[in-house]
C-alpha cells in the first residue's frame, strides 16, 4: 500500500514537473543595477506558449506617492489652485502583446485604454487645505490622466502591440527599464489568451536596485539626513574654496607679481 502511494506521488510529481517547466517564465537578467552610468536597461522575458494561445505580458512596479498641483484662474492670473497627493499607482506599467489589441478580451482592451488598469488601487487626496480629503473617482480622473501622460512621455508607461515574438511554441519579449523606474521587485505576468478569453497566467519578477555610490547616497539621504546634508555642504565649500584658491594662484602666476588694478566702484 505504502509503495503504491509512493509510486502514485512520483508519477504525479513527474507529470507536474513535465508540465511546469514548459510554461514557467524566465527573466534575464533577474537583477538590474542602477549605477552612476545608468541610462536605462533591458530585460528579456521568455516562456512557453500553450498551443493556440496569444500572450500579453504585463510589467508592473510597486506604487509610489506623487504630489501633483492643478493650476487655475485667480483673477487674471494662472496659479496653483489645488494640491493633491496620488497614492497606489505603479510608476512603471507596460503591456506587451503577441497579437493586435483587437484580439484581446474586450474588458482588458477597455482597461488598457488610458492605462485604467494601472489605476485600480489609485487614491487621490486633496491636500490644499489643512486636512487631507479623498477625491471621488470623477474628481481624481484628471490627476491620473496627467500622471499617465507624464509617465508615458518618460517611457515608464507603454502598451506595445505585437512586441512579443512567438517561435515554436515559445515567446520572447524585451522589456524596457527606463531611468525613472523605481527600485524594488518588478512583477512580470504573462496572460495567455484563447478565443478572447484569458485561459492561464504565469508570473515572475525581476529586481531593480541601486549599487555602488548611488546606493550609498540613497541610503544615507534616506536614513541620515543631517549627515548627508553636512556632507553636501562640505563638498560645496571645498569645491568653492578649491576653485577660488586655484583661480587666485592662476591670477598671481599670470600677473607675474604686477599689482592688481584697483576697483572703480
Amino acid at each position: 500500500m505504502r509503495w503504491g502511494l509512493r509510486l502514485l506521488s512520483w508519477l504525479f510529481l513527474f507529470l507536474l514537473g513535465f508540465a511546469l517547466p514548459a510554461s514557467a517564465l524566465e527573466v534575464s537578467p533577474d537583477k538590474v543595477g542602477i549605477g552612476l552610468n545608468f541610462a536605462g536597461d533591458k530585460v528579456t522575458v521568455t516562456g512557453a506558449l500553450p498551443a493556440g494561445c496569444n500572450v500579453y505580458v504585463e510589467v508592473l512596479s510597486p506604487p509610489v506617492k506623487v504630489p501633483v498641483n492643478r493650476l487655475g484662474h485667480v483673477g487674471p492670473f494662472w496659479l496653483n489652485k489645488q494640491k493633491a497627493e496620488i497614492k497606489g499607482v505603479p510608476k512603471l506599467y507596460q503591456v506587451y502583446t503577441s497579437c493586435p489589441l483587437s484580439q484581446l478580451p474586450p474588458a482588458l482592451r477597455e482597461e488598457l485604454e488610458g492605462y485604467q488598469k494601472a489605476f485600480r488601487k489609485a487614491e487621490v487626496y486633496d491636500t490644499t487645505g489643512e486636512e487631507k480629503r479623498l477625491l471621488d473617482r470623477q474628481a481624481a480622473l484628471p490627476f491620473l490622466q496627467f500622471l499617465a501622460q507624464e509617465y508615458q512621455n518618460k517611457g515608464l508607461y507603454a502598451v506595445r502591440e505585437g512586441a512579443v515574438k512567438v517561435t515554436d511554441g515559445h515567446f520572447q519579449v524585451t522589456v524596457d527599464v527606463p531611468p525613472g523606474t523605481p527600485q524594488g521587485e518588478i512583477q512580470v505576468t504573462a496572460h495567455f489568451v484563447k478565443n478572447g478569453q484569458v485561459v492561464g497566467r504565469e508570473a515572475t519578477s525581476f529586481r531593480v536596485e541601486s549599487r555602488g555610490l548611488v546606493r550609498w547616497l540613497r541610503v544615507l539621504a534616506g536614513t541620515e539626513g543631517p549627515v548627508y546634508g553636512g556632507m553636501a555642504v562640505m563638498l560645496a565649500i571645498i569645491a568653492g574654496l578649491g576653485v577660488g584658491m586655484g583661480f587666485g594662484l592662476l591670477d598671481r602666476l599670470l600677473s607675474f607679481g604686477i599689482p592688481r588694478r584697483t576697483s572703480r566702484a
Binding site: V233, L235, A236, I237, A239, G240, L241, V243, G244, M245, F247, G248, D251, R260, S263
Partner: peptide
C-alpha cells in the same frame, strides 16, 4: 553654497 563661497573668495581677494 559652492558658487557663493567661490565668489566670496574672488571678491575678498580684491578687498
Amino acid at each position: 553654497v559652492a558658487a557663493s563661497v567661490s565668489g566670496t573668495v574672488a571678491h575678498a581677494r580684491s578687498g
